[in-house]
């Protein structure tokens, strides 16, 4: 690409980045503003303070809720990706009667409004005696894998035939082909899907609120609500807590996205 075009492209991307990051940066700035100047549009209206962070850490067991949420989200992400990988493989590898129906049934789950399912889920989990447990938190969320199934089916359908044919000729079993050829080659996609499922689960509010009881299993989104009280919202501590719970995610993502990047540096396109 020519130099001028490159510079123009970077300029455009930088503008987009600035617009996208602005509300986030502002949350960070707000979290270190003293209460008295909280609403001042000037970010440097007063010397920054860590008071809100102290307040947030006192009110919310940050490590606890971050760990709870991480365990829940990781379990759901791994579970969904595993289920979806198997299903997508089954749907693309075999000319199965009714596979169109099976596909429709799997991605049709995205059409059902979550609000309609929360209460049946509560009744089920409560009958199983799993309220306030990780199992109870995770199980009802495993099936909302429509997006994962759809993405993986699309990508597997576009998978180069030659690789599979070669393996088949070499006598590899279906299972071997899935785990030795398809999965390794789709690793960037699988990673992306896992990240998305992880984040969506991380951001879930209604189900964790109902399924848990107190802080022992409370998740991030439920925990943040303690700053929105009937006496008004404690903006400073809320922003500080939001930064605290989002920070580990941002750092983790910055590392993980390299896997996506690395994949095509290896392929010589970077």
């Amino acid at each position: 690409m020519r130099r001028v075009t490159r510079a123009a492209a970077h300029l455009m991307l930088m503008l987009v980045a600035a617009a996208v990051a602005f509300p986030v940066l502002w949350a960070v700035v707000t979290s270190v503003k003293p209460t008295a100047v909280l609403y001042d549009a000037n970010p440097f209206a007063a010397a920054p303070t860590l008071d809100h962070y102290r307040g947030a850490l006192e009110a919310l067991p940050v490590v606890r809720v971050v760990l709870n949420t991480a365990i829940m989200s990781a379990a759901v992400a791994v579970g969904q990706v595993a289920i979806a990988t198997l299903a997508a493989y089954g749907l693309t590898r075999y000319r199965l009667r009714g596979r169109r129906v099976a596909f429709a049934v799997l991605i049709g789950t995205a059409l059902v409004p979550q609000q309609a399912l929360v209460v049946p889920h509560y009744l089920m989990v409560s009958r199983l005696g799993l309220l306030d447990s990780f199992a109870g938190l995770v199980l009802p969320q495993l099936a909302s894998s429509a997006l994962a199934v759809f993405i993986l089916r699309q990508q597997m359908a576009a998978f180069p035939d030659e690789l599979i044919e070669a393996a088949t000729l070499a006598g590899a079993s279906d299972r071997l082909i899935l785990f030795r050829i398809v999965v390794p080659n789709l690793r960037p996609i699988l990673t992306a899907v896992a990240i998305i499922v992880f984040i969506q689960t991380w951001n879930e509010y209604l189900w964790p609120l109902l399924a848990t009881d107190g802080v022992s299993r409370a998740t991030v989104q439920v925990g943040l609500r303690i700053f929105e009280t009937e006496q008004g919202t404690a903006w400073g501590p809320l922003m500080a807590a939001a930064v605290l719970v989002a920070a580990p995610l941002v750092v983790a993502y910055a590392f993980v996205q390299r896997r996506v990047t690395d994949a095509f540096i290896r392929s010589g396109l970077g």
Partner: peptide
């Protein structure tokens, strides 16, 4: 990383 930031921000916030 920057483009993905909004996804990482808690929805209510």
């Amino acid at each position: 990383t920057v483009f993905f930031l909004p996804v990482l921000v808690p929805p209510a916030v």
